[in-house]
């Protein structure tokens, strides 16, 4: 088995006295797509925020063998972690191209142009709209821009928080195709999704989170066939 790119052990995050994430253990192998599924409020977004350093956490996070404890977001970006948050957090008043260039803030200037070209190749729509103000883009384009901006940092692990949220099915499909193509390009993916069926379909491995703890894990195919997972997340009434 390939060595894990990120190895999380006994991770806990608290909001005041409320523990949103409780002793989560999780790994993402190099070049894998790993999904985290669970209901609203299960702690999925909190988990990603903790891994990125947006909020403080207890426990061990090892990235490429090195402990991330005490490192700020900037150092984690430099190390190769990148998060596309649920709310996208674009620079709404700036152009598409400026958003992308800023995505490469930590990328050496000499390599930034090449990175920009690669993003434009992957998202031709963004190239067409490069001079447009980010706040005027459609939902799907915003998600593409958010992913493009994250890719500008040339991450080794891309974390996507609900990339399909609020998007039409056709666009969701396109976004998931891009996620798969990113794995082929060597980027490991940690995917948090409410759309569990679509997420498990493209994943290698999956975790189910309930009330801040991992309750089930396994190869994505097995999870998709697990009766309890089907009942809670894949069956009628679920997404």
């Amino acid at each position: 088995m390939r060595s894990p790119l990120i190895d999380v052990r006994d991770l806990s995050v608290s909001y005041g006295k409320v523990e949103a994430v409780r002793g989560i253990g999780l790994t993402v192998a190099e070049g894998a797509i790993v999904s985290v599924i669970g209901a609203n409020g299960a702690g999925k977004t909190t988990l990603l925020n903790a891994l990125m350093g947006v909020m403080p956490s207890a426990g061990d996070i090892r990235f490429d063998g090195a402990l991330l404890a005490g490192q700020g977001i900037e150092q984690r970006v430099a190390a190769g972690l990148s998060l596309v948050p649920e709310r996208r957090e674009l620079f709404a008043t700036m152009t598409v191209e400026d958003n992308l260039i800023l995505g490469g803030f930590r990328t050496p200037a000499a390599e930034r142009t090449a990175a920009l070209e690669r993003v434009y190749q992957r998202f031709p729509r963004l190239k067409e709209r490069r001079r447009q103000i980010a706040g005027t883009l459609s939902g799907g384009e915003r998600q593409m821009l958010a992913m493009g901006r994250a890719l500008m940092a040339r991450p080794r692990l891309l974390m996507l928080d609900e990339p399909s949220l609020g998007l039409a099915p056709r666009i969701t499909e396109a976004i998931f195709e891009i996620v798969v193509s990113l794995r082929e390009a060597g980027v490991s993916i940690l995917l948090v999704e409410q759309n569990a069926r679509a997420a498990l379909e493209i994943s290698d491995y999956g975790y189910v989170i309930e009330l801040g703890s991992v309750t089930r894990e396994g190869p994505a195919r097995d999870l998709a066939a697990d009766p309890r997972v089907i009942e809670s997340y894949l069956g009628l009434g679920a997404h």
Binding site: M52, M94, L102, F105
Partner: peptide, 10 residues
Amino acid sequence: VNRLGARLVG
């Protein structure tokens, strides 16, 4: 424009 966005790109 967006403090969190800025932090996320480093």
